[in-house]
Simulated assay, not measured.
Amino acid sequence: MTEATLPDSLAEIRDEFLELPEADRLQLLLEFSQELPAAPAEYADHPELYERVAECQSPVFIVVEVADDGTVTMHATAPAEAPTTRGFASILVQGISGLSADEVLAVPSDFPQTLGLTKVVSPLRLSGMTGMLLRAKRQTEAKRRR
C-alpha cells in the first residue's frame, strides 16, 4: 500500500492502532465501537436505503452519500452486541466521511489488514470490514455518476 493513496483520516486511525502493543489494539477497537455515530433520522424509517454487508455475521448495514461537491458521507448500523464489527464500521464511517469520492475510491482494499489486528480478531471479522469498505467504494462510484 502506498501512503499516497491512504487519506490522512485513515492513516491516523491506522497509526493509532500500530502505536499500541498488540494486546491493547482490541481495546481500541472496542472504543471505536462506542463512537459509531447514529445514522440520520431520515434513514431510521427507511431500512431499504441501506445495503446489508453479507460478509459480516452480524447484521451490518451501510449507506454512502455523495454530495454535489463530491464529498462522501458514510453511515452504518451495527448491533451493540457485536462490538468488533461495530468498531470496524465506526473506523470506516469516521475515516471515510468528509473525503472526496476520488479519495474514497483510492483507499486500498487491504486497509483492514494494515491495522495490526490480524492476531487479535478472526479472519472472518477482517473479511467483514473488507466487505464494508468494498461496498462503500462501490456505492461511492455509483452515486458520484448520478
Rank of each mutant, 00 (worst) to 15 (best):
M1H: 12
M1T: 11
A4G: 01
T5H: 04
T5N: 06
T5A: 05
L6W: 07
S9V: 10
L10D: 03
E12Y: 08
E12M: 12
E12A: 12
L18P: 03
L18W: 05
E19C: 00
E19Y: 03
E22W: 04
E22H: 06
E22A: 09
E22L: 11
E22I: 13
A23H: 09
D24P: 00
D24K: 03
R25A: 07
L26N: 00
Q27F: 02
L28D: 07
L28K: 12
L29C: 03
E31C: 00
S33P: 11
S33W: 02
E35M: 11
L36T: 08
P37I: 08
A38I: 07
A38F: 09
P40C: 08
P40I: 08
P40Y: 12
Y43L: 15
A44N: 09
A44T: 10
D45L: 04
D45H: 14
P47K: 12
E48I: 09
L49S: 10
L49T: 07
Y50S: 11
Y50E: 06
E51Y: 07
R52M: 00
V53D: 02
E55T: 05
C56D: 00
C56G: 04
Q57S: 12
Q57V: 11
S58L: 03
V60L: 11
F61G: 01
F61C: 04
V63F: 02
V64T: 08
V64F: 01
E65S: 04
V66Y: 02
A67T: 09
A67W: 10
D69R: 14
D69N: 15
D69Y: 13
D69H: 13
G70I: 01
G70N: 04
V72L: 02
M74T: 06
H75W: 15
A76F: 01
T77K: 12
T77C: 03
A78W: 08
E81F: 11
A82N: 12
P83W: 11
R86S: 09
R86E: 13
R86G: 07
G87I: 00
F88P: 02
A89N: 10
A89I: 04
A89L: 05
S90Q: 03
S90W: 06
S90E: 05
I91Q: 06
V93C: 04
V93G: 04
Q94Y: 01
G95T: 01
G95Y: 01
G98M: 05
G98W: 13
G98N: 10
G98F: 10
S100Q: 09
D102S: 14
D102P: 09
E103L: 02
V104L: 08
V104F: 13
A106V: 04
A106W: 05
D110W: 01
D110S: 06
F111P: 00
P112L: 05
P112R: 09
Q113A: 08
G116T: 01
L117R: 01
L117N: 00
T118N: 14
T118Y: 08
K119D: 13
V121R: 02
V121G: 00
S122L: 05
S122F: 10
P123V: 05
P123M: 08
L124D: 11
R125I: 06
R125L: 03
L126C: 08
L126F: 04
M132C: 08
L134M: 14
R135Q: 14
R138K: 15
Q139L: 15
T140G: 00
T140Q: 08
T140P: 03
E141G: 09
R146K: 13
